[in-house]
Design a protein around this nucleic acid. Sequence first.
DNA 1: GGAAGTCAAGTCTCG
DNA 2: CGAGACTTGACTTCC
Length: 297
Amino acid sequence: MRIGYPCVNIGIGCTSARTFRLRSWSPERFRSTVRENLACLSSTLQFNIDHELLFFRITSDLIPFASHPVNEIDWEGEFSGSFTEIGDLIRESGMRISMHPDQFTLINSPDGGVTARSIAELAYHAAVLDAMNLDTRAKIQVHAGGVYGDKASAMDRFLDRYRDLPAEIRRRLVVENDDRLYTAADCCALSRSCGVPVLFDTFHHECNSSGEEMPEALAICAETWGRSDGIPMVDYSSQEPGARKGAHIHAIDLAHFRAFLAASRPHDIDIMLEIKDKEKSALLARAEAAADPRLAR
DNA sequence: GGAAGTCAAGTCTCG
DNA sequence: CGAGACTTGACTTCC
């Protein structure tokens, strides 16, 4: 079991998610931003290693406009040295990596243009992980997509598009239950048809389930992960009191987390804390889990 | 220097 | 029918 947080370290003083407006595009601006983002990513990973936070989600903003037509720069080649160094740091420390493209990435859209742009975006994510020489335990997580008024057709379209994906994407892609449309059971149905592993989001399950208790939902998702996929990844969060349903909590609720740890046994899982204050809560969670025999050191 | 408005991309829900 | 939400900031302009 590893514990981690997504994308950005609040306290470290840099961000690997710097970007700029399309209007400000220039090759020089692009190169300097990528250089800074990779340097910050390296610092962030070193912080994580020093604090035994061995699960990390790399931001989709790492390479700005990576899949946009304006960008014709061979960034993988130009920055291959940095990618290799970062990959070495990850592998030598036993760290696990995920990426999570944003809400515009929809492989099941009825609009072929949306799907084409989504596949280009997924190819970018796969290229980052490939450039770091990470194996197929490094994953790219997406939601099943929209419903478009007909869920059965939308799920069929997901399956068709999944089977046609380039192998570099398919071997890393996992599907995550969302808080409104596709439940863990829905995602597992997709998995039975095409083999995609299902990343279980326990907070989304609290918002939107097919009626199972959490341990059962976790169990059916865990079964979808094969040997080459690594142990199951799980997203963890809880409800921010007083906020809109589905709003992520600002700081970890340790009693809620402790209950989740107990209920998730005996599954060995990697836990991503989707909590607003990032590494601060991750450090508390790691301390809370210190006595758990599943914890990797 | 700080505040306000805006940002590549899609879809759904709510008011 | 427009705004807000999504994992959410961060950039840019305007004063």
